[in-house]
Design a protein around this nucleic acid. Structure first.
Length: 294
DNA sequence: AACTACTCCTGGAGGC
DNA sequence: TGCCTCCAGGAGTAGT
C-alpha cells in the first residue's frame, strides 16, 4: 500500500520523465476515480511539475490546472516509455510487468512522445481531483494534516503535546492519523515502533518524553531509508525475501532482526500489526527512563 | 472531544 | 480444477 516513501519515489520518477510532456489522449475506465473535474479536459495539458503533499501526488500543468491524485490502498502507476521500458511504483499488485491495459487499469494517459501511463487500482479506492490551481491548493490546505514525515521538522515538544490529547488510544493508531503526522501508513508505523522499541498497543499518553523523541527519530529514519534504498516490499501480506525493509511488518514467525525471537502478528486499530514481543514490551520502559507524559 | 467500528472494494491465497 | 471463504487497509464517517 503506497505510503509516503512509495509516493515520493513515484513523484521523483514521474517528474524526471513527464515534465514538459503533453497529454495526447485520455481513457477513463473507472469514472468514479474522478471526484471533481472532467478528465477529458486533460488532453492538451502540459506537465509543468509534479509535487507530493503528504500521500497526495499533485500534477501541475502549464495552464494553471492541477491534478491531485491519492492512490489510497492499492493504487499503482506504470509509465511505459517509447522504447518499451517501464517506470512503475505504488502498490505492487498487479506485477509492474503485467500486460497493459490490465483488468484493474482505471485510467490510461497517452503522452505526446508516444509513452503512456496506466493507473491501476485493484480495490478502486484511488481518487483524483482535477481543479484550477487555486482550488487545488485550497483543497490540499483543507486536509487535516500534521507535519510531513520526510520533510517537515518533527518537534518532540509539539507532538508530545498532541499525544497528551490521545491519552488511551494505542500509539500506532495515533501514528496512522494523518492529522498527527502526514505520510505514515501501516508498514512504516510498524517499522518505526520496532526501531524505537515501543509496543504498538501502548497508550499514546503513556509514552515518556524520551520515547517520543526516539519514536520521531525512527519515523524520520525509516521513511528516509525507504526513499533512499527503495521502498519496503510487501506482496500479498508477506515481506519479499531479501528486502532490507520491512524488518518486522509482514514477517510473522520470522526471527526478530535484533533478538531472534519470532515476530508476532496482532490487530491494533483495525490494522494487521507486527512487532517483536521481546524488543517491544507492553509495559512502559524501565523506571529510570524519565517521566511519563500526562 | 476522544475513541471505536463500520464502509467502501476486489484479486489472490488457501482450504477442501 | 474449481468453487468457496477470508483477508488486505487509507481515510472518511457515524455511533458510543
Amino acid at each position: 500500500m503506497p505510503e509516503l516513501p512509495e509516493v515520493e519515489t513515484l513523484r521523483r520518477g514521474l517528474a524526471e520523465r513527464l515534465v514538459g510532456r503533453t497529454i495526447a489522449a485520455v481513457e477513463v475506465r473507472l469514472p468514479k476515480l474522478f471526484v471533481q473535474g472532467d478528465p477529458t479536459t486533460l488532453v492538451g495539458k502540459q506537465v509543468a511539475a509534479i509535487r507530493r503533499v503528504a500521500k497526495f501526488l499533485v500534477w501541475e500543468f502549464a495552464d494553471d490546472w492541477s491534478l491531485v491524485l491519492h492512490l489510497n490502498l492499492t493504487g499503482q502507476i506504470i509509465l511505459q516509455l517509447p522504447d518499451g521500458t517501464r517506470f512503475a511504483g505504488g502498490h505492487p499488485i498487479p506485477a509492474f510487468t503485467v500486460p497493459l491495459p490490465h483488468k484493474t487499469t482505471r485510467l490510461l494517459l497517452t503522452l505526446d512522445d508516444g509513452s503512456w501511463l496506466a493507473l491501476d487500482d485493484v480495490r478502486t479506492f484511488a481518487r483524483a481531483w482535477l481543479l484550477p490551481r487555486p482550488a487545488a491548493e485550497a483543497f490540499l490546505a483543507a486536509q487535516r494534516r500534521g507535519p510531513d514525515a520526510l520533510l517537515d521538522p518533527l518537534d518532540p515538544a509539539t507532538l508530545s503535546q498532541q499525544l497528551r490529547r490521545h491519552k488511551r488510544a494505542p500509539i500506532k493508531a495515533v501514528l496512522l492519523d494523518q492529522a498527527f503526522l502526514a505520510g505514515v501508513g501501516n508498514i512504516y508505523a510498524d517499522e518505526a515502533l520496532f526501531g524505537a522499541g515501543i509496543h504498538p498497543a501502548r497508550p499514546a499518553g503513556d509514552l515518556s518524553e524520551t520515547e517520543v523523541v526516539r519514536l520521531l527519530a525512527e519515523v524520520r529514519a525509516v521513511v528516509q531509508l525507504a526513499v533512499q534504498e527503495g521502498v519496503a516490499r510487501v506482496r500479498n501480506g508477506r515481506a519479499v525475501p531479501g528486502a532490507q525493509l520491512p524488518r518486522v511488518h509482514a514477517r510473522r514467525g520470522e526471527p526478530c532482526p535484533r533478538c531472534r525471537q519470532p515476530i508476532v502478528k496482532t490487530v491494533v486499530a483495525q490494522r494487521g500489526t507486527y512487532f517483536c514481543p521481546v524488543c517491544q514490551p507492553l509495559e512502559a520502559a524501565s523506571p529510570n527512563s524519565t517521566t511519563a507524559i500526562r
